[in-house]
Design a protein around this nucleic acid. Sequence first.
DNA 1: CGACACGTTGAGATATATCAAACGTGGTGG
DNA 2: CCACCACGTTTGATATATCTCAACGTGTCG
Lengths: 220, 220
Amino acid sequence: MLESAVAEERALEPRKIIVRAGDPLSQSLLLTEGILSRYIDDRHGHRQLVAIHVAGDFVDLHGYPLKVLDHDVGTMTAAKVAIVPHAELDRITAQSPELARKLWYATLIDAAIHRAWLFRLGRLDAVGRVAHFLCETNARLMAAGLSDGHSFSLPLTQTDLSEICGLTNVHVNRVLRQLREERLCVFRSSLVEIPDLEKLAARAQFDPDYLYIEAPELVS
Amino acid sequence: MLESAVAEERALEPRKIIVRAGDPLSQSLLLTEGILSRYIDDRHGHRQLVAIHVAGDFVDLHGYPLKVLDHDVGTMTAAKVAIVPHAELDRITAQSPELARKLWYATLIDAAIHRAWLFRLGRLDAVGRVAHFLCETNARLMAAGLSDGHSFSLPLTQTDLSEICGLTNVHVNRVLRQLREERLCVFRSSLVEIPDLEKLAARAQFDPDYLYIEAPELVS
DNA sequence: CGACACGTTGAGATATATCAAACGTGGTGG
DNA sequence: CCACCACGTTTGATATATCTCAACGTGTCG
């Protein structure tokens, strides 16, 4: 049903702004390939990512009821998106309250992930933050069939990680070295390898419940 | 319509847990008086608040589609809540897609506030974080008719503030002194006074757009 | 009056930021 | 095919914000 609502598929270049905060919106994006981010810049141009999205995510569904976003959306890598006009969503939700509920549910998962990010920023140290993010990403990619649980592709820079974890890129570099030396995790040239997921999760105080993924055995 | 869905009103004692993460839920709460919080505790019992709620907020509406919450909900002060059974919400949303949309919208405002909190934790220093939280609370209370824009009641402890801002209570104490000395804001014995809201908002890089409050003149 | 919670202060420790430089490395044009 | 450039990574030295621990003050309530 959602597929029938797709107006157009589009390929996006890496590192482009897709939606700006405050722009009036008439469509939302279903991400089919690549990585997108949602972020807020401060007055000096320092950036805080508030979400990342991977294949399968409905990226700015928040913009459908909200009409305008409070943050920017941009590509991190090259990406492919399916464009879903809000008029189609109107049609669909009017027809099927059940699907409407599912869309609502999807935005609430986003909110739950926001909360986990708050915990990460508020209560974890630098190593814990990076480890927590990598655990989360591993779990989400596993659910999307893009990780085998021990290694996955993640074409982000260390600066990207710093903007996710509220750190500097220099410090992220040192954190990654420490994770490597402790054999918890190797992040190098767009590839993440996690030799001991359990140990990494413990270091990160990571508990995947907030992702509301069925089949929890996939995650552990 | 919502009012007709209220099954019961209840008075709650301060500092009580109302809902625990993972509990199956069959009702949600409409807060009519007092302050509630949503929070995540770490392994050592250190707490990160992920939201606070004031009179007029629909507190755990997220729990309606999600079925279980990923975080705890508790009272900070004595409070009064109206209990809305999920069965009633089923009835209402089936009857009125428009109201269903409004409920969805309300949860998305919560998510937008989560994002502002992420920005606060990730990119602001200690003074900025506290200032940002006080600006936000002022704006929200103003919208609820509980602040005149320059002073309002806020019966939280410095430890509460520290659990909101990702700081220690000791450091919050020093931050509050600094805000006082710079005549930006006085937080004392449950009362917040903001002599120069514009200066405080500038220090906090606070922009109220994310609250999606109509009548923006109320906020500035 | 004493107990307890909350607030305040100080000294010292530590994590993270800042600044600056060097090092790879993949891509591009000559 | 090589030289070079841009971008990301790595390292070192130093600065600074925040934490930790411990003590003391203050108000409230039984």
